[in-house]
């Protein structure tokens, strides 16, 4: 029964990683850049939801929508100000800029909200599920997190595979110039991608803080890195890969904590990444590009 309980916690944590990893992977797939500030957008989402509930007294659902709106806007602004001018710059310049944005967001949060941790109250008010005569208890937050992640995956999959915007995204991802020659506005497509990724980051932030209710300016940093790992693990650029990578990473982390060592759990997570990349450098579901002449 313990194992089952750990497994479910792992899937729940993994769901959060998956939601964050989706943002990383979509932005990478389309703009071909690693947005290392993505993790800090999660933190901003957490603070927005926190402010909305504790300072403005808004209901939880509204606070989530507020966090999503602010983060969407933040994502677009970051892209326009920091990354768009570097569209034809070397990848390293963009990477360093992204790290700069990350530090900027963390320090801005430090100025606004100080380093004191805020205790976040969960936005989920769902009764815990008691199974097997109460021997297995699944918290409401856990249930909601998993369901939200599944819904997000379904929606994203539909957008990317079935809509015109999604087709444009895939076209830009595969061949930016050819997409332009079809009439796709690449800048707009990249903006939309950042908007979607940042809205997801806000949701992830709220879920993360609901499960682990301590909110600090560095709250997003570690989950951000882990989700990035998850995206690489699953195959960066691949949406199903981000989902699979996130879930697996969450399970490995929780089981590692439970059965091996709490201190070593992060090391285990990253060791698994290294092993996977040695065996399959494109990640679990990474695409091989086939070219025919």
């Amino acid at each position: 029964m313990d194992f089952l309980s750990y497994l479910i916690s792992g899937i729940s944590l993994g769901s959060i990683y998956a939601i964050i990893a989706l943002g990383y992977t979509m932005v990478y797939g389309i703009a071909k850049m690693l947005n290392f500030a993505h993790g800090d957008v999660i933190m901003v989402g957490g603070y927005m939801s926190f402010m909305a509930t504790t300072h403005f007294g808004w209901p939880p659902l509204l606070s989530v929508l507020f966090a999503m709106a602010v983060c969407t806007l933040l994502g677009i602004v970051i892209e326009q100000l920091a990354y768009k001018p570097l569209r034809s710059a070397p990848a390293l310049a963009v990477l360093i800029t992204a790290i700069g944005v990350s530090y900027f967001l963390q320090n801005a949060a430090l100025l606004i909200w100080s380093a004191n941790p805020k205790s976040f109250s969960s936005v989920v008010f769902l009764e815990a599920l008691r199974l097997f005569d109460g021997r297995l208890i699944i918290s409401g937050t856990t249930i909601v997190t998993i369901i939200v992640c599944l819904v997000i995956i379904l929606i994203l999959n539909t957008i990317v595979n079935k809509t015109k915007v999604g087709r444009a995204m895939r076209a830009v991802s595969e061949d930016k110039d050819a997409a332009q020659l079809m009439g796709v506005n690449v800048n707009k497509t990249i903006s939309i991608t950042f908007a979607i990724g940042s809205a997801l980051a806000a949701i992830a932030g709220v879920l993360l803080c609901s499960a682990y209710p301590i909110l600090m300016p560095t709250t997003g940093a570690m989950p951000g890195i882990k989700a990035f790992t998850a995206a690489v693990f699953g195959g960066i650029g691949s949406i199903p890969g981000a989902f699979l990578g996130g879930i697996l990473l969450g399970i490995i982390e929780i089981l590692g904590k439970a059965y091996i060592s709490t201190q070593l759990s992060d090391a285990i997570v990253f060791a698994v990444l290294i092993i996977i990349l040695l065996v399959k450098p494109t990640g679990l579901l990474g695409k091989k590009v086939l070219v025919k002449v």
Partner: peptide, 29 residues
């Protein structure tokens, strides 16, 4: 492209990971 001045580029530059139908739909973007 919106002025109906269209280029079919060198080396075809198809979207290889999309279906034939989706490529045609991209042409009519």
């Amino acid at each position: 492209v919106r002025k109906r001045l269209v280029q079919c580029p060198e080396g075809r530059r198809l979207f290889l990971q999309m279906s034939v139908k989706e490529n045609l739909e991209m042409g009519a973007y």
